[in-house]
Amino acid sequence: MFFHIVLERNMQLHPRHFGRDLREKLVSKLMKDVEGTCSGRHGFVVAITGIENVGKGLIRDGTGFVTFPVKYQCVVFRPFKGEILEAVVTMVNKMGFFAEAGPVQIFVSNHLIPDDMEFQSGDMPNYTTSDGSVKIQKDSEVRLKIIGTRVDATEIFCIGTIKDDFLGVISDPATAS
């Protein structure tokens, strides 16, 4: 799920940046530091949308660096248990398949793939129904439900299922191209 929230961060800035562009420098450094990172509590920081407030700087003893407390608005993405996501399949093997929804990696084990879908090895490993009408392979898009999440400092990993109503392939690269 996406959230638009306000976060705060202490930014350290080198004295050479002090001048007319201080604020811009601070913002561009913030974007570089924060966007694309992941925090356990909020999930992935997708984009910074605005700066709420830059606090008073504090000079660090000995180094000359100045620390500014910056409050910023950002869009974060965090998957939850029970959430339905659309994801792109990245790898298929006999254990199941891996898919990605943006920065989140999701594993769907073969226990949670409908029983009528069977693994087919070969050049392009895939899961296919017996009549061949539905096929999951690399680059397929699937709709899945998250049943477990583990949030680390740097990545979020999920276990998903497609063994439920209205879940499964939503677009097949073979038919699309």
Binding site: H111, G148, I159
Partner: peptide, 11 residues
């Protein structure tokens, strides 16, 4: 897988 059961998602 990654500290979660691959079937029920339990930690």
């Amino acid at each position: 897988m990654g500290g979660m059961c691959i079937q029920c998602g339990q930690k």
